[in-house]
C-alpha cells in the first residue's frame, strides 16, 4: 500500500489566502490542484511536503474567457473543460488535440492546466502546447501579479519560475488571424507517458506565405522551440519539401534517451514524422481545408 508521508492540510479560500498560506509554511508547502501528479510523487517519497495547500475551492480560477485578442484560461480549469470547449477548438485546436491524449478521461476530470504547467514534467503535453502558442503565464504573489513568457516560465524538468510563495493563476493565449495549430502524440497505451509528441502553430501572411511558424516537441529532450526547423518554413509558401525538411531538422535537433518506450533512433524518427504531420494539419486548418 502506497501512502504519502504525514503532512498537514489546509484549504485555501482565495488566491490571496493561498499565497498567505504558502508564505507562512515556506518551501515545505506544496499546492495541490488535481493531485494526479503530486500524490503519486508523494506516495513514492519523490515529494514530501510538510503542508499541502488545497486550491480546489478557488472556483474563480476555473474559466475560459475571451478578452480582446487573448484567450484567458484560469489555472484551475480542468483538462476536461478545455477538451470540451468549442471556443478552444476553434481558436487553438492544438489544445484540443493535446487534451484528447492527456492521461485518460477520468484523470482529465481532476487535472488542471495550471497543475500540468507547474509540474513541468518533460513528457507533459500542455507545456509543449503553451510553448508553441507563445503563451503567457500570470503568477500571483504577495506583491501582486507578474506575467512571463513560457521560455522564462520553464526552468528545467519539474522546475518553473513560480516561487514557493506564488501561485500560477492564468494562462493567456494570443489569438492571431490566419493561423492554426495541431498536436500529435504517440503513446503505448492510454494514460502512458508519451514516446514522443510534436506540436506546431502557423500564421499566414496576406500573400499566402508563412508569416510565423512554431514547432515544439515533447519527451525527446528538447524544451525550447525547434528554431532550425521553423526557419525553413518562415517567409515561404508551404511546400511538401519544406515540411519534410522541417521534420528532418527536428529529428536531428532532439536529444532523446533510449528507454523501455523506444530507442534513440525510433524517437528521432517519431520527432521527424510527427512534426511533418502536425505542420501539414496546422497549415490545412489555417487554410480552412481541415477541421
Amino acid at each position: 500500500m502506497q501512502i504519502p508521508a504525514p503532512f498537514d492540510y489546509a484549504r485555501a479560500t482565495s488566491v490571496d489566502d493561498a499565497v498567505a498560506l504558502l508564505t507562512r509554511y515556506g518551501e515545505d508547502a506544496h499546492v495541490i490542484a488535481g493531485g494526479h501528479s503530486l500524490l503519486p510523487m508523494m506516495k513514492l517519497r519523490l515529494a514530501r511536503p510538510d503542508w499541502v495547500i488545497d486550491i480546489n475551492d478557488l472556483h474563480d480560477l476555473d474559466y475560459i474567457r475571451r478578452d480582446g485578442d487573448q484567450l484567458r484560461i484560469g489555472a484551475l480549469t480542468r483538462h476536461r473543460t478545455l477538451l470540451e470547449s468549442a471556443e478552444v477548438l476553434s481558436l487553438f485546436p492544438i489544445v484540443t488535440d493535446a487534451e484528447r491524449v492527456v492521461a485518460d478521461p477520468i484523470v482529465r476530470n481532476r487535472g488542471t492546466i495550471g497543475g500540468s504547467l507547474c509540474q513541468a514534467d518533460p513528457a507533459e503535453d500542455l507545456s509543449t502546447v503553451c510553448t508553441v502558442l507563445g503563451a503567457e503565464a500570470v503568477i500571483h504573489g504577495a506583491a501582486g501579479d507578474r506575467t512571463i513568457g513560457m521560455e522564462e516560465f520553464h526552468r528545467g524538468p519539474y522546475e518553473t519560475a513560480v516561487a514557493f510563495n506564488e501561485l500560477l493563476t492564468e494562462v493567456r493565449l494570443t489569438i492571431r488571424p490566419r493561423s492554426s495549430s495541431a498536436y500529435e502524440k504517440v503513446e503505448r497505451r492510454v494514460g502512458d507517458w508519451a514516446v514522443a509528441a510534436a506540436g506546431a502553430a502557423v500564421t499566414f501572411a496576406d500573400d499566402g506565405t508563412l508569416d510565423d511558424v512554431a514547432i515544439g516537441v515533447t519527451a525527446v529532450g528538447l524544451v525550447n522551440r525547434v528554431a532550425s526547423a521553423e526557419a525553413v518554413l518562415r517567409g515561404e509558401k508551404p511546400s511538401e519539401s519544406a515540411i519534410a525538411e522541417a521534420g528532418r531538422l527536428t529529428g536531428e535537433a532532439v536529444d532523446p534517451d533510449a528507454d523501455q518506450r523506444g530507442s534513440v533512433e525510433y524517437k528521432r524518427h517519431l520527432a521527424n514524422e510527427l512534426t511533418q504531420r502536425v505542420l501539414r494539419r496546422a497549415i490545412a486548418r489555417a487554410q480552412g481545408l481541415e477541421a
Binding site: 495541490i32 493531485g35 500524490l39 488545497d54 480546489n56 477520468i106 476530470n109
Partner: peptide, 10 residues
C-alpha cells in the same frame, strides 16, 4: 475519479 489519487480530505 480515481479514489487512490484523491485525499479523503479533498
Amino acid at each position: 475519479v480515481k479514489s487512490c489519487t484523491v485525499l479523503a480530505a479533498m
